[in-house]
Amino acid sequence: MRKKINGMVVLALMVTAGCSSEKAATTASESADKAVAPLVASSPTPAPLIPKAPAPILSPITAPTPTGYGFDQWQRGSLGDVFFDFDRSSLRADDQERLKQNAAWLASNTGKRALIEGHCDSRGTSEYNLALGERRASSAKEYLVRLGVAPTRLETVSFGEERPFDTGQGEAAWAKNRRAHFIVK
């Protein structure tokens, strides 16, 4: 069973690697762009388009790729992630710009809903990060609601430090992990 899930995750990663390169240009931050590069490079052929099979909600912890959980098999639509300063859940100016774009997309795609995942880097302690992750997701949600998105279309969840976007150490990796990650439903 576990092997099967692993296989699905790897497959999903390979499949989305090809498509995410173009999305990255418009939706992901510069740092996220870098993260996606090796994935693209490692795909020997353009990934075929296959139906978007629902990915498992949770992948095994042992990340199948060097980039870890992230950019990613769940980046379905046009909603970009927002990134945070260390131990902060307040929105930076660039975050607010991205959230305005997200709000505009949601306004023109009224049938869509979004799940906002709050994430943290691996530093500090796990319990605190689980709380901090929720505050990051909530910050993003509240801003979208102020921009007119119906709160019923936005769900939040915290993963704390449990699902890093980049499993590396150092500020470059940590900065990518301190984020609110959007998944279009």
């Binding site: 909600i57 949770l58 912890i61 796990s126 319990e127 689980l130 969840v157 915290s158 993963f159 704390g160 449990e162």
Partner: peptide, 27 residues
């Protein structure tokens, strides 16, 4: 749980185990 399970704590009498998991998708 095949999810993320965190912070187990046993009651003083050992009868109950409290913890957080993500089986529902959230902690």
């Amino acid at each position: 749980s095949h999810s993320i399970t965190l912070t187990p704590a046993l009651s003083p009498d050992g009868r109950y185990l409290a913890y957080t998991d993500f089986i529902s998708g959230a902690p």
